[in-house]
Design a protein around this nucleic acid. Sequence first.
DNA 1: GTCTATAACGAGATAGAC
DNA 2: GTCTATCTCGTTATAGAC
Lengths: 243, 243
Amino acid sequence: MSTIRGARERARIEITAAIKDEARRQLAAEGAAKLSLRAVARELGMVSSALYRYFPSRDDLLTALIIDAYDAVGEAAEKAARGEAGAPALPHPARWLAVACAVRDWALAHPHEYALIFGSPVPGYTAPQDTVGPASRVGQVLIGVVRDAYLADGLAVPPQSAELRTEGARMAADLAADLPPAVAVALVAAWAQLFGLISFELFGQFNRVVEAREQLFRHAVHELGRSVGLPAGRPAGAGGAGG
Amino acid sequence: MSTIRGARERARIEITAAIKDEARRQLAAEGAAKLSLRAVARELGMVSSALYRYFPSRDDLLTALIIDAYDAVGEAAEKAARGEAGAPALPHPARWLAVACAVRDWALAHPHEYALIFGSPVPGYTAPQDTVGPASRVGQVLIGVVRDAYLADGLAVPPQSAELRTEGARMAADLAADLPPAVAVALVAAWAQLFGLISFELFGQFNRVVEAREQLFRHAVHELGRSVGLPAGRPAGAGGAGG
DNA sequence: GTCTATAACGAGATAGAC
DNA sequence: GTCTATCTCGTTATAGAC
């Protein structure tokens, strides 16, 4: 009996994965707004009503894709923050850069999933609570890198804005109680700005403007690291000292 | 004869505007991917084929909406950069902030048009050349503010990255030949990061994370101004000296 | 020349009866 | 699960009003 259940569950997992794969293919071809359970079913040789055994509605399928995407980019960021297995730990500015580059690499490799989570909202769809956790993973990684730097060497705490005293304290308490509020504020801003760089590249705003996109990205991310208080990893003009 | 032509042209302009208005309404309701010529025609009491007198295809209608949106946000930025008619010119950091806030205000007032131009690309649509000019207006305004500051008081030229020497020179030559390449590089990064802040707010990434969004935005934009070399307009901790 | 309306095409979605 | 009748869509050809 347990083997039967095991087989059934294995089949269920496989079919669920196949549905999501096909849905991702449609995401790329037609966009999230036109994601249709019927088309997915047709492509899979199933009948549309059968899909409802796996996803109770189109929105639930969308939610699953969104969570998968957040988890994938979050995992890429976490892996980059850990560094290579046997290798010595990178200095903190280099880890910051590695995380950002990992996010960008994932985005370039999965542009439609990136657009799903960081692009325009899907009309008529509102994300449920389940997406909140996965959505915060990249941010948590960035916080972790800065926290490590703070505990190890301290930070050049960025200037505090008087207007943001209350909100800064609230955000710090929510996100990273052990960091100075000014650092928490700078981190949230850097987080949004990091994705601004990626979105502009991915969504075509850099067309006819920026050619050396990776170099610009690395440079800007390095400066973003400084904006949250990290030390300058590769001093300007030192001729590629870092790594 | 000229009055007849005048009347025709007036009617043509009015109908064209009505089509775009209705299309914008559908943009808000269903998203750009589902913009339908037939639905626009139906809502206007016209027959779908009649629309082809005004827009040769659905994509051309989309292009017109995109250009209108770029022009609207560009005009808002230009107006903010000019300042109020009789008033004395603002100091450069305040102008920088005013431009950014004008862009954000426009985005908050027109979220769907913002998503059309700065959100996910519309599947199956590629923007023609005509959009390039309007798309650059906000960037031109930012360049102009920094150029004025440079010519008046000079700038704290940001650190130059060795990797970006060639690309920085190219971008400076393309965008602002009179500015130091390091400033041009910082400007392009700041431009993307500015829209990262707005997109995160508009697309819901700040939900449950940031509450005082305008304050955070103003603070981050002020720091972005410093990243391109503008002086600190309102020194941190000085208790609202600027205005 | 300028416009609108009718009709049609091929493709695809959708609802409901079976 | 299947089949069918009825929708939608973008687009074109054509005819006629002004």
